[in-house]
Design a protein around this nucleic acid. Structure first.
Length: 788
RNA sequence: GCGCCAGUGGCGGAAUGGUAGACGCGCUGGUCUUAGGAACCAGUGGGCAACCGUGGGGGUUCGAGUCCCUCCUGGCGCACCA
C-alpha cells in the first residue's frame, strides 16, 4: 500500500554558494526520500529559493549590480552546485519567492488575510534598525540588537502593517501538544515565546483625573500590599502629563542605565486610589516596566516581588507584608497564608486569587484575564527587495487594499539604490498612480513584506507552483501536512511559529482540514571544524595547514600555526571546507556517508580528514566486495541479510542514520570474515537496494554491472520469522553480577539449565558451601542466582 | 537568575531496567604489494591479579549508564514577562 510522503528541507537563501551545512541538511532529506520511493510511497521532495531579503540589496550597492540580477545569478550557481550533489529532488516544483509568479499569490493571501481581519494597519512603536534602515519584528531583536546587523535597535513610532498572530495564540500554544514528532526543545521555546499567563486586570482610578489605569497582574492576591503604581515611558498617561522634550530626556536617562538593570523611576505627581483600601498611592514612570507586555503598567507590591522591593527601597516607598512567611526575609515570592488583607486573611495563594477576582468582578473594578507575551507580527519593511504590499493611499490619508484583479503589484526593476532608505519611495513613476476605481491620484504602499511571510507558505505553493491562485484547497487537504521537515534549530521560533500561524489562518479562510503544517520536525546539528590561527591571530583555512615534525605550519609561508577549538564552520573563522572540493576528491557517495556517519544527525558533526577518508574507504570496500566473483556461498546467511534490511529500515525511519552506517560495517565485516562473496544473486540484490538510499551512485553502478539493470527494485519486505534467534548466549549472574555465559537455546527448561549451571567451576567456586536462596530466571534473557 | 538538555575508553559514539563500550576513528604488532588518501590479519576500558569501571554522593530493584533525590561540570534557550 502506497502512501503520500511529503519530505522537505528548509529552502536556502541564495547567497551564491552552498556550504557543508546545506549538504548535511539535504543528504538527510534525500536518504528519507529515496527510502520512501523504494517503499513505493508517493514522495514529494521539492526545492526552491528564499530569494527576497536584504543581503541582495547590500550586495547590489557594494558590487554595483541589481538585487534581482545578483539573486538570479546566485540561484543559478547554487542550483548547479546542488545538481552535482545528485539529490533526488522534484525540480519541476522549483520556485523562487522573488519571482512574480510567487509573490503575486502572496499578495492575494495578504488580501485574504485583510478581509479576514487578520491583517491591519496601526501606529506603533517599532524596532528600528539604524544600519539596515528598516523595522524589525520583536522576534528579530535579540538583546536589544538587530539580528543581522547587531546594531542597537531604536524605538520609532510608525504606521505599520501587522498580522494578527495573537488571535491564534491559544491555539498555537495548545496544538504544540499535537506535535508529538517535534523536538521537545523547540516546543518549549515556542511555549515560552507565546508566554501565556493567567491573572487579572484591575482598574485603578487616577485621583486627579476622570480616568482609570488598567493593570495586569498574575498576583491579584497581593493587592492589599500595593503601595505604588509604575508605568512604562511609552504609556499614554505619560504623554498626557509631560511634554515631548521631558519624555525624551527621561527616555534617554533610562537608556543610559543599560545592562546593569538598576531600577530608576520618576514620580509623575499623580496618584491612584487603591481599589479596595481607602488610600492613595503614587504613580511613577519606571524603567523596568515593559511597554509591550500587559498594559504597560503595574502595581508594585514590594513585600512580595523582587523588582518592586528594590524599587521601593530606593524611593522609600512603604513595604506592606500581606503573605505570612514567618521570618523569611522579604521579598517573599512563594505561597503562604494571606495577612493584612481583610477579605483574604487566612487563605492560601490560589484560593485568595480566586476570591479576590470574584470580588473585583462584583465591584466592577476588574476581571479575570489571560495575557500573552506574543505580540502581533509587524510585517512592514522599509526595503525595496521584497514583496510589495498591495495597498494604495489617497491624498486624504485614507487607503484601499487592492482587489485581486488588480494584482500583481510588480516590483519595478529600474530603481536607484544610491542613498539611504527605501528605493521605492524615490521611484515616483511607480509610486504615483491614478486609482482605477475612484480616478483619484493615489500612491502605492512602498513598504514591502517581511521575508518571513514568503517562507510561511512556500511548502503549500510547492504542491503546484504554476497555479493561477495561491494553491488548490483540495490538493492541500490531500497532500499536506509536510511529513518530515528538516532544517536548522535556528528557526525554532520565527519561521516555524509564523508558518504554523499561516497554516491556521489559511485553514480558516479556505476551509482546509489541516491544522499544522509540519507533522514531524527534525533539526539537524551543525558541522564544526577545528580552527587554525597564526601567532598574530590571523585565521587560517584548514587546507593551508600542513603538519611537519609534529608541528603545524602554514604551507606557503612556513608560519607556525596554532590549533584552536572546534567551532561551527564559518567564513569569518575560515574553518570551512568547500563542498565542491570534497565532491571532486571523494565523490558524492563518500560525502553522503560522512555526513551521517560520525554522529547522530541531530548533533554536531565534527569535520575531520580521517572521517571523510574512512567514508571513502567504506565505499571502495563495498565495491571491491561485490566485484569478487568467487566465494563460498552459504545459504544460511539469509538471516544476516534479513537483520540488515530490518535494521537499516528502522534506523532510517528513526533518523538514526549513524547507525545505518554501523549496520553496513557489521554486515560486510560478517560476510568478509566468512568469505561469503555473493555476486549476482538474490541476496546481493537485496543488499544493493538497502544501500541505495545511502550510496545511490555506487548502488546503481553495481546494479548495472551485476544485474544489467538501471532500476533499483522495490524495498524488500522483512520476514520477521527469520529475525528470531534460537541459539542464545545466556548470561548467568550471582547477586546481579555477571559470572559467565552459557550457550543454550530459547525455551530452555529452568530446572535443566540450573543443573548444568551448578556444575560450572566458576559458579561452584562462588557458591561453595553457601545456600542458594533465590533464582531469578528471566526466560531467554538472564539468570540471576542469590545466595545468602 | 529561570528553564531545558547532556556528561560512557585516547576520540566520535552504541546499549526495550537484564553480558556496558555495537560500529567507526586513532593506536600497537604483523602480512602483502601494482608503495596507496591503500588493502588484509591480530590486538586495543583500567589493573599483575582478585577485581574495578558509565561526572560525585545517596536511594528504588534480584539486577541501574538507563528510574528517583541531591550536588558538580558543560551546552543551549529565555532573561526585569508583573
Amino acid at each position: 500500500m502506497s502512501s503520500k510522503k511529503y519530505i522537505l528541507e528548509m529552502f536556502p537563501y541564495p547567497s551564491g554558494n552552498i556550504h557543508m551545512g546545506h549538504v548535511r541538511n539535504y543528504v538527510i532529506g534525500d536518504i528519507c526520500a529515496r527510502y520512501h520511493k523504494l517503499k513505493g510511497d508517493e514522495v514529494i521532495h521539492p526545492m526552491g529559493w528564499d530569494a527576497f531579503g536584504l543581503p541582495a540589496e547590500n550586495a547590489a550597492i557594494q558590487f554595483k549590480t541589481h538585487p534581482k540580477d545578483w539573486t538570479l545569478t546566485n540561484i543559478k550557481n547554487m542550483k548547479d552546485q546542488l545538481l552535482k550533489l545528485d539529490l533526488d529532488l522534484d525540480w519541476d516544483r522549483e520556485l523562487a519567492t522573488c519571482n512574480e509568479n510567487y509573490y503575486h499569490y502572496q499578495q492575494e493571501l495578504f488580501i485574504d488575510l485583510f478581509n479576514a481581519g487578520l491583517a491591519y494597519k496601526k501606529d506603533a512603536i517599532v524596532n528600528w534598525d539604524p544600519i539596515d534602515q528598516t523595522v524589525l519584528a520583536n522576534e528579530q531583536v535579540i538583546d536589544g540588537k538587530g539580528w543581522r546587523t547587531g546594531a542597537t535597535v531604536e524605538k520609532k513610532k510608525l504606521s505599520q502593517w501587522f498580522f494578527k498572530i495573537t488571535e491564534y495564540a491559544e491555539e498555537l500554544l495548545n496544538d504544540l501538544n499535537k506535535l508529538t514528532l517535534w523536538p521537545e526543545k523547540v516546543k518549549t521555546m515556542q511555549k515560552n515565546w507565546i508566554g501565556k499567563s493567567i491573572g487579572a486586570e484591575i482598574k485603578f482610578k487616577i485621583v486627579e483625573k476622570d480616568k482609570y489605569l488598567n493593570i495586569f497582574t498574575t498576583r491579584p492576591d497581593t493587592i492589599y500590599g500595593a503601595t505604588f503604581i509604575a508605568v512604562s515611558i511609552n504609556h499614554q498617561i505619560v504623554n498626557e502629563m509631560l511634554d515631548t522634550a521631558s519624555i525624551e530626556k527621561i527616555r534617554k536617562d533610562f537608556e543610559e542605565v543599560g545592562d546593569d538593570k538598576e531600577k530608576i523611576g520618576i514620580n509623575l505627581n499623580l496618584k491612584c486610589k487603591h481599589p479596595i483600601l481607602n488610600k492613595e498611592i503614587p504613580i511613577y514612570i519606571a524603567n523596568f516596566v515593559l511597554d509591550n507586555y500587559g498594559e504597560g503598567a503595574i502595581f508594585g507590591c514590594p513585600a512580595h516581588d523582587e523588582r518592586d522591593y528594590e524599587f521601593a527601597k530606593k524611593y522609600q516607598l512603604p513595604i506592606i507584608k500581606v503573605i505570612d512567611c514567618m521570618d523569611t526575609e522579604l521579598p517573599y515570592i512563594g505561597d503562604g497564608k494571606l495577612i493584612n488583607s481583610p477579605l483574604l486573611d487566612g487563605l492560601n495563594k490560589d484560593k485568595a486569587i480566586d476570591e479576590i477576582i470574584k470580588f473585583l468582578i462584583n465591584s466592577g473594578i476588574g476581571e479575570k484575564k489571560i495575557n500573552y507575551k506574543l505580540r502581533d507580527w509587524g510585517v512592514s519593511r522599509q526595503r525595496y527587495w521584497g514583496c510589495p504590499i498591495p495597498v494604495i493611499y489617497y491624498e486624504d490619508g485614507s487607503y484601499r487594499v487592492l482587489d485581486k484583479s488588480e494584482l500583481p503589484v510588480v516590483l519595478p526593476y529600474d530603481i536607484s539604490l544610491e542613498g539611504k532608505g527605501n528605493a521605492l519611495i524615490n521611484k515616483e513613476s511607480w509610486r504615483k498612480i491614478i486609482c482605477p476605481k475612484t480616478n483619484k491620484e493615489a500612491y502605492r504602499e512602498t513598504d514591502t513584506l517581511d521575508t518571513f511571510v514568503d517562507s510561511s507558505w512556500y511548502y503549500i505553493r510547492f504542491l503546484n507552483n504554476k497555479l493561477n491562485q495561491p494553491f488548490d484547497p483540495s490538493q492541500a487537504n490531500k497532500l499536506l501536512p509536510v511529513d518530515k521537515y528538516i532544517g536548522g534549530i535556528e528557526h525554532a521560533i520565527l519561521h516555524l511559529l509564523y508558518s504554523r500561524f499561516f497554516m491556521k489562518a489559511l485553514r480558516d479562510i479556505y476551509n482546509l482540514k489541516i491544522d499544522e503544517p509540519f507533522k514531524q520536525l527534525f533539526t539537524q546539528g551543525m558541522i564544526t571544524h577545528k580552527t587554525y590561527k597564526t601567532i598574530t591571530n590571523e585565521w587560517v583555512m584548514p587546507i593551508e595547514v600542513v603538519s611537519k615534525n609534529g608541528k603545524l605550519l602554514r604551507n606557503k609561508t612556513g608560519e607556525t600555526i596554532e590549533e584552536g577549538p572546534c567551532e561551527k564552520m564559518s567564513k569569518s573563522k575560515k574553518n570551512v571546507v568547500e563542498p565542491n572540493e570534497i565532491l571532486e576528491s571523494y565523490g558524492i557517495d563518500a560525502t553522503r556517508v560522512f555526513m551521517i556517519s560520525d554522529s547522530p544527525p541531530d548533533r554536531e558533526l565534527e569535520w575531520t580528514d580521517e572521517g571523510i577518508q574512512g567514508s571513502k574507504n567504506l565505499v571502495n570496500r563495498i565495491q571491491r566486495y561485490f566485484l569478487k566473483k568467487k566465494g563460498n556461498i552459504n545459504l544460511n546467511i539469509e538471516k544476516e541479510i534479513e537483520k540488515f534490511v530490518y535494521n537499516i529500515e528502522k534506523n532510517i525511519l528513526n533518523f538514526s542514520l549513524n547507525k545505518c552506517v554501523a549496520d553496513i560495517y557489521t554486515l560486510f565485516n560478517y560476510l568478509e570474515k566468512k568469505e561469503l562473496y555473493l555476486y549476482d544473486n538474490k541476496l546481493s540484490k537485496k543488499i544493493l537496494i538497502c544501500l541505495f538510499p545511502i550510496v545511490p551512485k555506487l548502488s546503481l553502478s553495481l546494479n548495472k554491472t551485476l544485474f544489467k539493470s538501471d532500476n533499483i527494485e522495490k524495498w524488500p519486505d522483512v520476514n520477521e520469522d527469520l529475525l528470531i534467534e534460537n541459539k542464545i548466549k545466556l548470561p548467568i549472574q550471582i547477586h546481579g553480577k555477571l559470572v559467565t555465559t552459557i550457550d543454550t537455546t530459547k525455551g530452555y527448561s529452568e530446572k535443566e539449565i540450573l543443573k548444568t549451571i551448578y556444575q560450572l567451576d566458576k559458579i561452584k567456586n562462588k557458591i561453595q558451601n553457601k545456600k542458594v536462596t533465590k533464582v531469578i530466571n528471566v526466560q531467554d534473557k538472564i539468570i540471576n542466582i542469590i545466595i545468602n
